[in-house]
Computed example of a mutant assay.
Amino acid sequence: MRIKKNIYDMLKEKSNDYWEEDSQYSHWTNYYIPFYKDMLGEVLDLEKDKLTYDNNRVVAKAKKGIDKIEGYTFGGDVIINIKNMPDVYKASFDYDSKYNECNLGIMPKEGNLQGAKKRIGNDWRFDLFLKAINRYYIDGDNTIIEQAKKRNNSDYTRNVLNFFSNKIASIADADWTDVDPKEKIYNFTGSLYGISREMTDRFLECDENISAQDFYILIKDFWNERDINRLQKNKKGV
């Protein structure tokens, strides 16, 4: 039987260029682990020696015994893909690196939410992605499920959305059905992006025809909030 190599063997064997930029080991050790440890440490194996790989991506796995997402793999994800923006929007940004750490998050491979984010907002209109998730939570609108569809993965998508509709801090005794639908999107964005209710509301209230300048301000504030949270976590040694 073929034994899968561990992450350290793969790091020795493969050059840094082999790995997808948003899921390189250095991003995990310098950013993903300290940023997400207090938010997702109860559900993901975020210790350095527990990381593994999926093809050319470094990933973390959901821990055993975690209802709904046991064994799911979480990899890096570019939140706002600047390169996909129309020129009039792209021109407002003072840099074009999409791999700044305040623009990186981790998402489960199962459920294909990354694919839905690309289909709904071409991977840069993050507000449209969050609105689609909120509509699913509030009134059962299946747009996010349909846009995430890849083979027969609808159950995985629902599992991910339902799991992150709950506050992870109370995971041990969570009742997945006993959550106010209006609170679910805040639990989702808090756990997967580490942002406040206020920032989440700004995305949900974003005008579909938002100007390039206003969108620039929104995204810069989003990045600044995540960067402040990162610095606070690093000070605490989380």
Rank of each mutant, 00 (worst) to 15 (best):
residue 45 D to R: 09
residue 45 D to K: 10
residue 46 L to K: 08
residue 47 E to L: 10
residue 48 K to R: 07
residue 48 K to I: 04
residue 48 K to L: 10
residue 50 K to E: 14
residue 50 K to T: 15
residue 54 D to P: 00
residue 55 N to D: 07
residue 57 R to W: 02
residue 58 V to G: 03
residue 58 V to M: 03
residue 59 V to A: 02
residue 60 A to S: 11
residue 62 A to L: 06
residue 63 K to M: 11
residue 63 K to E: 09
residue 64 K to Q: 15
residue 65 G to S: 15
residue 66 I to C: 07
residue 67 D to P: 10
residue 69 I to W: 00
residue 69 I to H: 02
residue 69 I to Q: 01
residue 70 E to K: 14
residue 70 E to D: 15
residue 70 E to Q: 15
residue 71 G to F: 09
residue 71 G to V: 06
residue 73 T to R: 11
residue 74 F to W: 13
residue 76 G to V: 02
residue 77 D to M: 10
residue 78 V to G: 08
residue 79 I to Y: 02
residue 81 N to Y: 06
residue 83 K to P: 07
residue 83 K to M: 12
residue 85 M to S: 13
residue 86 P to F: 09
residue 87 D to F: 06
residue 87 D to N: 13
residue 89 Y to N: 08
residue 91 A to Q: 09
residue 92 S to G: 06
residue 92 S to C: 14
residue 93 F to R: 03
residue 93 F to L: 01
residue 95 Y to R: 11
residue 96 D to L: 12
residue 97 S to T: 07
residue 97 S to Y: 01
residue 97 S to D: 14
residue 100 N to W: 03
residue 101 E to V: 04
residue 102 C to P: 11
residue 103 N to M: 05
residue 103 N to Y: 11
residue 104 L to C: 01
residue 107 M to F: 12
residue 108 P to W: 01
residue 109 K to F: 04
residue 111 G to Q: 06
residue 111 G to N: 08
residue 112 N to T: 08
residue 114 Q to W: 13
residue 117 K to F: 11
residue 118 K to Q: 13
residue 119 R to W: 02
residue 120 I to K: 12
residue 122 N to R: 13
residue 122 N to G: 12
residue 122 N to Y: 13
residue 123 D to V: 09
residue 125 R to I: 04
residue 126 F to K: 00
residue 126 F to A: 04
residue 127 D to F: 07
residue 127 D to W: 05
residue 134 N to P: 10
residue 134 N to L: 00
residue 135 R to C: 06
residue 135 R to G: 01
residue 136 Y to D: 00
residue 137 Y to E: 06
residue 138 I to A: 08
residue 139 D to A: 07
residue 140 G to F: 12
residue 140 G to W: 12
residue 141 D to T: 10
residue 141 D to P: 03
residue 141 D to V: 08
residue 144 I to Q: 06
residue 145 I to T: 09
residue 146 E to S: 10
residue 150 K to V: 12
residue 150 K to F: 15
residue 151 R to V: 14
residue 151 R to M: 08
residue 151 R to L: 11
residue 154 S to K: 15
residue 154 S to R: 12
residue 155 D to Q: 15
residue 157 T to C: 09
residue 158 R to T: 05
residue 159 N to P: 08
residue 160 V to G: 02
residue 162 N to F: 00
residue 163 F to P: 07
residue 164 F to L: 01
residue 166 N to L: 00
residue 166 N to S: 01
residue 168 I to Y: 01
